[in-house]
């Protein structure tokens, strides 16, 4: 039984089902992440955003557990994405002299590996920017604002969210089909939800580089013009602050 289950999960349908479940869970994370990030715009000082981040940090080991969970989802999804893509290329050794699509193959659907890899690169940069860097003394919001006021930062973030939006525009619909939810009574509302999510997440995350770079917010200008503060003493990490 267990052998059957594991071998069935590595079948063509099993692999795709795992990809879609991990992908959908990652989308779930993105929704929460975006909602949290939007607190950056809810005041002019970045206090709400910093409070939100401090609150998250206060979960300590639970937060670490969630981070490990996310990393596992990401790695499983990515590994299967690579495997599926290479198997698919190998399934037709000799290609047609002439190729003409006439189904619903699209730019997004034919570039899933490329957009996925762009998201991967972006996520690494993003984590190095904000997760694995010492917290500045003037808060995380200020760090974000500074990063997204640099042309290089804006470029990287815009490319990252654009790739994500394109990836998701095929991904959600595809996942519904992979999980067998199409052609059921749920499919219409779900397809609509997918469209809202792909556009919502793409546009939502794009707001940060766009708004911060344009300097449309007051705290933006202040933080962007302020020089980066000197290093925080290493023995006062934000977690401890939160626990007080």
């Amino acid at each position: 039984m267990t052998r059957r289950l594991s071998s069935s999960l590595s079948s063509s349908i099993g692999k795709k089902a795992l990809m879609s479940v991990t992908g959908l869970l990652l989308i779930g994370f993105l929704v929460v992440h975006l909602a949290g990030n939007l607190t950056l715009f809810s005041d002019d000082t970045g206090e709400h955003f910093d409070a939100y981040s401090t609150k998250l940090m206060s979960f300590g080991p639970l937060l670490t557990l969630a981070e490990i969970g996310l990393a596992v989802l990401f790695v499983v999804h990515l590994a299967l994405g690579l495997r599926v893509t290479f198997e698919n290329r190998a399934a037709r050794a000799q290609r047609y002299a002439l190729e003409r699509d006439r189904g619903s193959r699209s730019f997004a659907s034919s570039t899933m590996l490329v957009t996925g890899c762009l998201v991967l690169v972006f996520v690494v940069v993003h984590l190095l920017d904000f997760r694995f860097r010492e917290r500045a003394s003037d808060g995380l919001a200020a760090m974000v604002v500074r990063r997204l006021s640099e042309p290089a930062g804006v470029l990287i973030y815009l490319v990252g969210v654009t790739a994500l939006g394109i990836h998701l525009s095929h991904a959600f619909r595809s996942a519904l089909q992979t999980l067998g939810l199409n052609d059921t009574r749920f499919d219409r509302p779900l397809v609509r939800l997918g469209r809202v999510l792909a556009i919502g997440l793409g546009v939502g995350f794009a707001l940060f580089p766009l708004i911060l770079f344009s300097g449309a917010r007051k705290h933006t200008q202040a933080a962007a013009q302020a020089p980066a503060p000197v290093e925080v003493p290493a023995d006062v990490p934000a977690v401890e602050e939160a626990q007080r």
Binding site: S12, K16, E87, D101, R102, G103, S110, S174, Q177
Partner: peptide, 15 residues
């Protein structure tokens, strides 16, 4: 048999 995996692009239905 060595067939590839489905990526839900519906070329089959059109053909």
């Amino acid at each position: 048999e060595g067939f590839g995996n489905c990526t839900n692009e519906s070329e089959c239905e059109a053909a």
